[in-house]
Amino acid sequence: MIEAVLTGAVAGGTCIVFAGLGEIVAERSGVINLGTEGSMLCGALAAYAVGIETGSPWVGVVAGLVAGAVLACVHAVLVLHRGANQIAVGLVVSFLGIGVTALFGQDYVGQGVVPLETWDVPLLSKLPFLGPVLFQHDPLTYVSFLAVPALTWMIWRTRAGLVLRAAGEGPEVLEIYGTSARRVRWVALLTGGALAGVGGAQLATAATLNWSEQMTVGRGYVAVALVIFAGWQPIKLAGGAYLFAGAIALNLQLQARGWELSRYLLEALPYVTVLVVLALLSRRRIHGGPAALEKVFEG
């Protein structure tokens, strides 16, 4: 059962990992993007629709990436050029994504897509326990495994990461050194939207092989919350996403085994687990955020 729960944690958590990584990039640059839910949906629909039209799931994934970034543009324009409130705009952008995908997605409900097939990693997938948990998934899941350390390295060990953090900590300083904070934030927001789009693409074309209205059911918002609780650290974020999805998998396992537990309790499990564990782990989280997060910077 532990193996099944952990496998479920990875299978269900991957789309949240992508969206959360995207949100980390955006927030490290100083912008909260609550539109992540909308970007995930745009990514899911674009990947599904383009996958069907072209017959290639990979072209679909690229379309999902682009669609997620396009929706993030709306957020970027309003926040970076109009100085609008990030929270309010983010919510509106989210609803925009929900509405637009519901409208354009109608034709694709119930249509079949060429799936992004599961690819067992040679040798590693044969390992007992670890094989099924980590190495019997779709290719995008492996990409997410690599993206977590890659982003950590990028943020802390590269010049690009330094500039990104500077935009979030002290945009004035960045401007003094001749780099436009607004430009950095544009790139960060587009990257964030693109990653959320890839998360949506993974959900639609690999995890569920389905498109339906609002199919993310709030996972974009979960990703945003996890970023804050995870103290803007990619590794903790991934842990939080797997914890969330693992709790869902545990709920299903317990139900199928006929455990006499309250349904309501089991359904609250993912949220309660994540809140409790992250609250215990990160007492410093309130002070760990980028200093200029959410502040309007008139560069």
């Binding site: 299978a11 269900g12 995890a207 569920t208 092989l209 339906s212 199919m215 059911v217 869902i248 299903l252």
Partner: peptide
């Protein structure tokens, strides 16, 4: 309708 949970169910 939560396809992710459905596929795991």
């Amino acid at each position: 309708c939560d396809p992710s949970v459905q596929s795991q169910a």
